[in-house]
Amino acid sequence: MQIGSGNTPEVETDTELRVLDEFDDTYFSDSQVALQRDVAERKKLLEMSERYSGTIIALTEGQLELWGSVDNENAKDFEKSLHDYLHALEEMHKKKIIAGGYVDKPGANWVVKLLEIAGTPQDELKNVRKNRLLAGVTDYWMFSQILDEHERSAVFALQAKSAEKYKDVLAIHFFYINVGNKKYPKIARVDVPLWVVENPGMLNALHSVLVEQSKIMGNSQQFPYLLHRAHEIAIVTHREKEEIDRLLSRDILSRGSQLGEKSPKQSAKDLQGRTQLSVPSFGALGPRAAGGWVSGVWTHPRYSH
């Protein structure tokens, strides 16, 4: 979207067909899909940025750090993906693109933990996780009390083992922002690399755009409009998935091939409808009771609901 241009925003989607044989295992997990997607998003944003001039902001939903480092399933693919991801970020830095990750309703409490560590005497630090000074307090709550409408917090540097690979200008930082107002705050966390933090113009531009984008969504559900649209376009609904499965099945069968069978468990789950159960009128359930035994429910011979 070119803000203020009056031009129709552009939409680009990339589809990649992956064959299961490419992978060592016979199962392609959700976390593997997410990893591939996160890397592809950054690469795509970099590619699209080539067509534009001026101030360019590349925003993704979710943390800036590539997720998957603690996921054993992905361990084999993760290093390669991280290498590609870091390369994409480096290229963005070279092109002076403002990169950011938007986390809606953040659950991490890094600032609260920082305050707990700062408030704990040196000799008690080893127990800081057990003896929490601010137990029950969250970053979200804290900043909802502090930040006024559209204000942002100070910028913090992320200190985590998993983020050590993001070195120098790629080092991950974050700030909190209130895209709502004082009475109804909506706190989000924005992850940014160091090169954005060190450039006040970039930081302010990102802040400003996030406020404007969230305002587009109206008064009750402030969330960056472009991220919502990206999600709307990308999502594959259950119904669409079923339709694709049907199309594939028809094509496979028409070529004389065979389809795998549903498991008996899944077949039972897919059964439609439910029979009306009769309420037992008296006595214990059991085949010897006077009413007899009907579909596992005892019914009185003269009375049923």
Partner: peptide, 24 residues
């Protein structure tokens, strides 16, 4: 639902209007 939400905002920019008319 999205359009109902957009109209609650103060003004809808031309880019957003075109996005909804031409892209959605």
């Amino acid at each position: 639902g999205l359009v109902r939400q957009l109209v609650t905002a103060d003004g809808v920019s031309e880019e957003v209007m075109k996005d909804n008319r031409e892209r959605r």
